[in-house]
Amino acid sequence: MYKVKVYVTLRESVLDPQGTAVKKSLQSMSYDAVADVRIGKYMELTIDKTDRDVEEVVKEMCERLLSNPVIEDYRYEIEESVVL
């Protein structure tokens, strides 16, 4: 069993209207040090062990469905969990 954490964010080159709105809000709350806010998605997947390499499968899922490569980047963390 694997626990997979997937983070999807808008690409650096793509304006993030939500992030901009949150940044402005934080700045108006006097958090002047906030230089940028990017909003993304966080997903947790539980994946059974199969013959296929788990990293390969996760990458494939990220590219086909979990992110849109035109505007988004993704990264992931894979942990093998021990089933007691």
Binding site: L15, P17, Q18, N68, V70, I71
Partner: peptide, 17 residues
């Protein structure tokens, strides 16, 4: 159609949200 790749590009939230 964009997600399916039948047309190029992608959609973002409206600028005004």
């Amino acid at each position: 159609l964009l997600e399916a790749g039948l047309l190029p590009g992608a959609m973002r939230r409206n600028e005004s949200l």
